[in-house]
Design a binder for these strands. Structure first.
Length: 580
DNA sequence: GCCGTTTTCGGCCCGACTGTTTTCAGTCG
């Protein structure tokens, strides 16, 4: 992990879990969780901070500041060691299974000696859990379902973590003397999870590069070292590989390492028909027995009679024919976004105050920002009409104070994230909803309703004239929770009919809608919102992953409402004129 | 363990759902 904030976040969350498992003070546990979250979302790098500097972060007091300082200095915290020793690491991993919390994890350990997920599954299948209080047939089945969801991602990394690791590795390779180095594979295609981080490096002599690679700080273990390739594993078991190519074969090498297997196979076939051999280390004219220079990917694709294909499309889903015909789509990009339509502040569960979120959004060059804190039915957020109206006043005042146009000429929209109840109703009455510039409506409960009920509630939410965006429409959390069961085509049709946009939520563990559903929704004529769902200033950058997901679905900017100028967006929202 | 203060201890995010222990503990958003 590259960022010390993220390392400390993981450390403090681990300790919080251990407190819960060992039956420690629940408030102490919460204090550690809160500090972890605050440090993760802290806008600055904590690497250079001393204990006093750390204490300035809200939620970090003297005790945690000292422990974090000790960790940053020595790489460990002595006070944690005793608690750690009392709980096998696998017991904590049990808590990642839905329906298993600290109490049940500890019961499994104490009563049945279970110290890991595999053991738990084995115990259930062998009937060893019968008679154990709290683990009736329905719970046992829920556990097995949860394990199945987790295994779908089976140790794969989320995009943001994979990206941080890749960035560190690429920098390390360049520092080791490569002419250039970057990541390829599933990460460059921006698949939602990444099994291994695969890098390509350009150098004339691979030997020293591979040697330096296996010595990089994150490489806990060398898996293999060949003539031009090497693979290492991180302490967390994540695989990182590198292939070294000659600088004049960089384009071919990068393309070979980037495309999905089927895309690369199609390129290879196309090359063969032209008397060329497309290999991981370059492009070769077979008859002449000579290398064809491909210093860039553009040269490689051109040699095959193709336009350059954006990495996010390289899945063999029609992109090669389109590239041959000069018919590749103009994809939406992160830069095309003029604003963010789903963000939170510390009025509910965000970390940053309104003014800080506005400032950070302005620094991104946005023309507008919608602030959409949680509505009251998410009880723990304790939202009230008074509180959200006070926020509206603050937001309007902020905008007025900045010369009527917000920071940097940015306009502010006051919104909320409503909760879609089991019947499709939302938190506030129509008259109150009419006062918002924008309402995002999302499902936050009753994930287990049957298909008909889920479909009905989503369609009813679309039909609510005050709801303009459906947030994280399928509510999946990668590796944790599957999608709700709904007739998505019926929902997409309702969105198109009612002029309700679907969100592509950029939170790395959501990416919801995901690319294949975006493709399906497009066929119904739906419009999309690419949102960060930011709970801190840093998380505004999550739209990077929204844009990547949109690209994988071949989405052009014209179909994304937050690439539009404000006037057009407001017409779509039905706030300045009739809806389209 | 943090925070705010009625400055040194008391409160801290609330409540619905679920399965099952049939009266409520555990989990979750």
């Amino acid at each position: 992990m590259a960022r010390p904030n993220d390392e400390v976040d993981a450390l403090l969350r681990e300790y919080a879990d251990l407190i819960a498992i060992t039956g420690g003070d629940a408030f102490k546990q919460r204090a550690y969780e809160k500090a972890a979250r605050a440090i993760r979302g802290h806008p600055r790098d904590i690497g250079g901070l001393d204990a006093a500097g750390l204490r300035d972060i809200p939620g970090v007091g003297a005790s945690i500041a000292d422990k974090v300082e000790e960790y940053l200095r020595t790489g460990r915290v002595q006070a944690f060691d005793a608690t750690r020793a009392a709980v096998p690491p696998g017991v904590r991993r049990l808590m990642s299974i839905p329906s298993l919390g600290p109490k049940k994890a500890m019961t499994l350990y104490r009563e049945r000696g279970i110290t890991g997920v595999d053991e738990l599954v084995e115990a259930i299948n062998a009937g060893r859990l019968s008679g154990l209080s709290g683990f009736g047939p329905r719970t046992r089945e829920k556990i097995l379902r949860g394990v199945a969801v987790a295994r779908e991602t089976g140790g794969r990394m989320l995009l943001d973590a994979a990206h941080d690791l890749a960035d560190e590795a690429a920098q390390g390779l360049v520092a080791a003397g490569c002419e250039r180095a970057t990541w390829a594979g599933a990460l460059r295609r921006m698949r939602e999870t990444v099994g291994s981080v695969d890098l390509v490096a350009a150098a004339r002599d691979p030997g020293p590069v591979l040697e330096a690679f296996t010595a990089l700080p994150f490489a806990a273990r060398t898996v293999e070292v060949g003539r031009v390739r090497a693979a290492v594993a991180t302490a967390g078991g994540q695989r990182v590989t590198v292939r070294v190519v000659a600088p004049d074969g960089w384009g071919a090498g990068l393309a070979h390492a980037t495309g999905a297997r089927a895309h690369v196979a199609a390129l290879r076939e196309r090359a063969a028909r032209r008397g060329l051999r497309f290999a991981p280390d370059g492009l070769v004219d077979v008859d002449a027995g000579e290398r064809v220079a491909t210093a860039t990917e553009e040269e490689l694709y051109a040699a095959l009679g193709l336009d350059w294909v954006p990495p996010t499309l390289r899945e063999n889903r029609g992109e090669i024919d389109a590239a041959a015909e000069g018919a590749l789509p103009a994809l939406v990009t992160e830069d095309a976004l003029r604003g963010d339509l789903h963000t939170h502040t510390d009025l509910t569960d965000g970390l940053a105050p309104l003014a800080a979120m506005v400032e950070a959004a302005a620094a991104r060059g946005y023309a507008y920002l919608a602030v959409t804190d949680h509505a009251p039915r998410l009880r723990m957020q304790r939202m009230t009409e008074e509180k959200i109206l006070a926020q509206r006043e603050e937001l309007r005042a902020l905008e007025r104070g900045m010369g009527g146009r917000g920071a940097g000429g940015m306009r502010l929209l006051h919104g909320t994230e409503l909760n879609i109840d089991p019947d499709g109703g939302v938190d506030w009455p129509d008259a109150f909803l009419a006062g918002f510039d924008l309402c995002v409506a999302s499902i936050h409960s009753h994930f287990g309703l049957d298909r008909a009920a889920q479909t009905r509630r989503l369609i009813r939410a679309c039909e609510n004239p005050h709801v303009q965006v459906i947030g994280h429409p399928t509510t999946r959390k990668i590796g944790l929770r599957g999608r709700i069961d709904a007739d998505l085509d019926a929902v997409f049709a309702a969105c198109a009919r009612t002029g309700t946009a679907l969100e592509i939520n950029g939170h790395p563990n959501r990416l919801d809608l995901h690319d294949e559903h975006v493709m399906r929704a497009r066929r119904h004529g739906v419009r999309f919102a690419l949102d960060s769902d930011a709970h801190s200033t840093r998380e505004l950058a999550n739209v990077r992953w929204s844009a990547a997901t949109a690209q994988r679905a071949w989405l052009p900017a014209a179909e994304v409402i937050n690439t539009w100028p404000l006037a057009r967006l407001r017409r779509f929202l039905g706030r300045d004129a009739e809806r389209p």
